[in-house]
């Protein structure tokens, strides 16, 4: 579903990503693991088109997208859940949810969303600012599901959340991938990453240093953690 080949990204003189190649298949959950500053967020932003200073190719659903605008990529089916969750404070939960356009026939209806996220149904007329961190995270994920995005880019979905909510988000991620939706996520919480992911890309200083399936990642976890310093 997502194919990145030879991707390099820079901020002016500083090279943040170097010759990164990776793939995410439909229904697959793939994590990017690495220290702060390894280039994980830049990689997601490059896929979304929010970071433009890049070389290399990005293909989504068999189509080259690196020249498309972020809005065209969103409409093609890429859903971005930023690390700040991106909830609009001046809009209600319901308005936040229905703000983006529906881009694919597989989009979840609002009824289905409220069924899967009862807490959002309860708070549908609350303003975005009145939500807790966990509720905001759920709303951010629900929003891209309602768009019908086929590839979700999740930037640290478990950050700052209570364990019970992290678990709920893991369940949601597992559930959505049964609908052939692909997920590329950044995660510092290794326990969470190993619960949801099929594969892991280890990123260090802008390069992919290792690609592991979940079983071998778990087997080598202590060593890798030390190596990555997380």
């Amino acid at each position: 579903m997502l194919d990145i080949a030879g991707l390099s990204a820079s901020y002016g003189e500083a090279h943040v990503l170097n010759d990164v190649s990776l793939t995410v298949k439909p229904g697959e959950v793939v994590t990017l693991v690495g220290r702060n500053g390894a280039g994980k967020t830049t990689l997601l932003r490059a896929v979304m088109g929010l970071h433009r200073d890049i070389e290399g190719s990005i293909s989504f659903a068999g189509r080259r997208i690196e020249r498309l605008s972020p809005n065209a990529r969103a409409r093609a089916g890429i859903g971005w859940v930023p690390d700040d969750r991106g909830i609009y404070a001046s809009l209600t939960v319901a308005e936040n949810l229905t703000l983006p356009p529906v881009v694919h026939e597989s989009a979840w209806s609002t009824e289905k969303i409220y069924e899967a996220f009862p807490v959002l149904a309860l708070r549908r007329s609350s303003m975005g600012t009145q939500l807790s961190g966990g509720e905001q995270q759920m709303l951010a994920i629900a929003r891209v599901l309602r768009m019908g995005s086929r590839l979700l880019l999740l930037d640290e979905p478990s950050e700052g959340l209570a364990p019970v909510i992290v678990q709920r988000i893991a369940e949601i991620i597992r559930e959505i991938t049964t609908h052939d939706i692909a997920v590329l996520l950044i995660e510092q919480n290794v326990k969470f990453a190993t619960t949801v992911a099929d594969r892991h890309y280890l990123l260090a200083q802008g390069r992919i240093v290792e690609t592991l399936d979940n079983a071998s990642f778990q087997a080598r976890e202590p060593e890798l953690l030390k190596h990555l310093g997380i």
């Binding site: 979304m48 971005w80 809009l91 703000l99």
Partner: peptide, 24 residues
């Protein structure tokens, strides 16, 4: 209107509105 809500979204954070599929 829904159009007005998109304008609000653009005002609050235009990059985010773009990533949600709107031609700002």
């Amino acid at each position: 209107s829904p159009f007005g809500r998109v304008l609000t979204a653009i005002r609050d954070n235009s990059a985010r509105a773009r990533a949600l599929g709107y031609d700002v």
